[in-house]
Write a protein that binds this DNA or RNA. Sequence first.
RNA 1: UGACCUAUGGUGUAAUGGUAGCACAACAGAUUUUGGUUCUGUUUGUCUAGGUUCGAAUCCUGGUAGGUCAA
Length: 402
Amino acid sequence: MTQHKLSKKKVIVGLSGGVDSSVAAYLLLQQGYEVEAMFMQNWHDTTGTLHGDCPWKDDLTVAKLVAKQLGIPFHFIDLSADYRKKVVDYMFAEYERGRTPNPDVLCNREIKFDVFLKACEDLGADFVATGHYCRKETTTVNGVEVHRLLAGSDPNKDQSYFLCQLSQKQLGRALFPIGHLLKAEVREIAAKLNLPTADKKDSQGICFVGKVDLPVFLQQQLKAKKGDIVELPKDYTPSRASCHSGLDSDWLPQLAQPYTFSPADGKVVGQHNGAHFFTVGQRKGLGVGGHVESLFVVATDVESNIVYVGEGHEHAALNRPALFIKKEEVHWVRPDLHMSAGEERSYLVRIRYRQPLQKATLYCRREGIYVVFDEPQRGITPGQFAAWYDGEELLGSGVINQ
RNA sequence: UGACCUAUGGUGUAAUGGUAGCACAACAGAUUUUGGUUCUGUUUGUCUAGGUUCGAAUCCUGGUAGGUCAA
């Protein structure tokens, strides 16, 4: 890309103890940067953690080994307090409201490219690098430097979605050295160099916390509370305030309005331990059998503690044509391309990590942005981020409000 | 209380008297740096007591349970 040999520029790479960041560090050295490594510890609690007792200690050991092998200085920083406050507390708060948060998007915005970034700057770094599968391209628009966030070249690993909340300022300091590579190529490089991370399994689960049993994890803060599981009949037709076919001014809010249900719309088929432990589209964990197709969570009502379910992927209540993002929760990675009230544009949108991009039209209104999809979307989930792309460039994102 | 019907794994169901299948759930593994999804695999059953038969989930009798119709 535009990463020419910029000798003397100092980069600190967030070494996690995985392959990706290891290879990223190596590539930065190749490109002539002055490279240092910093391992961040963000979590030490193992409550509800599934595998291993202290996975981060192993990661730390491996990260040190990698730094030693590459011959770069190694730093350690404990950001647990920040992580708890900015990521974990947010998670609990969102679940409590009945929404489904995305902690990793927050982790990038609040930790890696904020607190961690500042720590790196304190050490004199010009840039911070990570092992994300995404690319950055810096160009000039009207004489102003603009950073573009592009999808990773490996279509199967693209992680740009997780960075959808970054600002120009944050992007300006970021480097993604492996974004143009395929995962297989990264592993190959690691293997050639004999890096201890070459064969290490990819990490999964909430980054830094690890693979957890979510209900158990959440029960640290949110108490279990028995409630009804209400099944909506298969032929149920969701109703909203009548939707006019015309172009009257409020057709958008109506189209994006979530369906509302009442216990009278279906029948009680089971019990759950708390509506806030469930998320729209969820299949596992309901414990209700006896159907031809699986039951999926269609909606949760935290107020009355009811989980609404429907049978099968195609259940009408599970699929919606549009979603809404509040004005305050709209974020433009490219502020120079932001939309103004009254504007509408066609973009490609995804509403969860790894979802294939969907054609949609964004309508900007005074109160926020309405995203109307060409095809109805299954499991539109409040709390998750919708990110819109123009081709392979991520332009903006926002929290799905409804 | 009179008559009739039904009784299969956690749930819903299948099996001309001939080794009890399927779906859903649950569990496990794979995939996935959120939640979730998806894929693969595994476990568990003939209400009870007798009888007929070479052989019973299936036929007969009693019991128990649930349901339907009966004033």
